[in-house]
Design a protein around this nucleic acid. Structure first.
Lengths: 203, 203
DNA sequence: TTGACATATGACAGGGTGTCATTTAGAATG
DNA sequence: CATTCTAAATGACACCCTGTCATATGTCAA
């Protein structure tokens, strides 16, 4: 989390700083991003940056969390509108995220360099990597009668699977520079396979 | 790829260098690894390192590729022994990898910082992220009659899905410090869900 | 012995990070 | 208005790491 001083900043200065950071993290992934570039762009001295943030990671995760908060909001909206059908929801959600133009490069750099820490932060928007409050919230909105599960506990693993495949599809979209329709086609095929099952068994 | 000079090195010096690199990449992920530490450990001057490798990444991917080559060998052996049953094979394979003691920390650092580049290198061992020679090889060994697919083309997506879920399970194992049995239990549940399908549909 | 080529070496420039002593600003107080 | 106290701003600097390059060393063949 950024320090209090950051939140105490006048709105416009805060916004300048956020935009500068966003620009740098859109240019290159966290790994290669340089604080020097951010402060140059924002026009603030080096010491000030450390007045506001712990370090580079702190600034990055602040931005990422802002973004996933919006995503989570969208996701919950979609899930409600689709009467708890998780597959329909994921498909709509997937399209929306890959269509985001404003954050395209930020997302690209993030997905192509998805460390565990980043994945954890990101998956808050549509899944839950631990059995936490988020999971309870999602669980209550999902129509479990549509799913091939015997108990509440299995729902967790179903979501894990869907999340894993979805993440990979995001990465694929950015890695291979797929168009939106190409990515959607692939994603639809995979979601259908997930739905109907991969195994037929010995004849 | 390392430079020719590296391969020309006397066996023992090459081995020392490999061990030094392995030690550093086991200590911390690629991101944080320092060439300075590697050369200190190996007892060679800085310039020499650059005589052998392009840079840090070059050394890392050399090690990773060595490892995945062994994994691929194991995988193909298992797939053959299981008469092309991809699920049985994955389950055995998963256990073997998470049981590796010698490379534990190297694997841990690698899985918890799995960028797209690393994933690509790694997945050569049991999957294929593009429709390449590896895919043809695997495809020919897999008993497709066991799978719920209508054409050869769908096999690719089936493997993508299995790979995605398996990767996530690896990450989970290391991230949450699961015991081998805990990780296996989770993996088995997920593989079974994948097999039978996640969807039941409206009543 | 000499030349030519491959390899080894370590000093160094360049660039980035995080810190800290000092300065400045602003609010509160008498 | 002067004074004091605290929060915030600042930028020079120490530290660390990377990749390079001019120079040294070794080896082999003529």
């Amino acid at each position: 989390m950024p320090k209090i001083t950051f939140f105490n900043l006048p709105e416009d200065k805060k916004e300048t700083l956020i935009q500068a950071a966003k620009k740098e993290f859109s240019r290159v992934p966290l790994y290669d991003a340089s604080i020097t570039n951010i402060i140059k762009e924002a026009g603030i001295p080096r010491g000030s940056f450390y007045q506001y943030f712990e370090d580079k990671d702190d600034a990055f995760f602040f931005l990422l969390n802002e973004l996933t908060r919006e995503h989570k909001y969208i996701f919950i909206h979609l899930l409600t509108r689709n009467n708890g059908d998780i597959f329909e929801t994921m498909i709509e959600f997937f399209r929306i995220i890959i269509s985001e133009e404003e954050n395209f490069n930020f997302l690209k750099n993030t997905f192509l360099n998805m460390t565990h820490r980043i994945e954890k932060a990101f998956s808050r928007s549509f899944s839950a990597n631990e059995k936490n409050e988020s999971f309870e919230k999602f669980s209550s909105l999902i129509d479990k009668t549509l799913l091939n599960i015997s108990d509440e506990n299995e729902l967790f693993y179903v979501l894990q699977i869907i999340a894993a495949v979805t993440f990979r599809s995001f990465v694929d979209k950015f890695a291979r520079d797929l168009t939106i329709e190409e990515a959607m086609n692939t994603y639809l095929i995979e979601m259908n396979l997930l739905k109907k099952g991969l195994y037929r068994g010995p004849a």
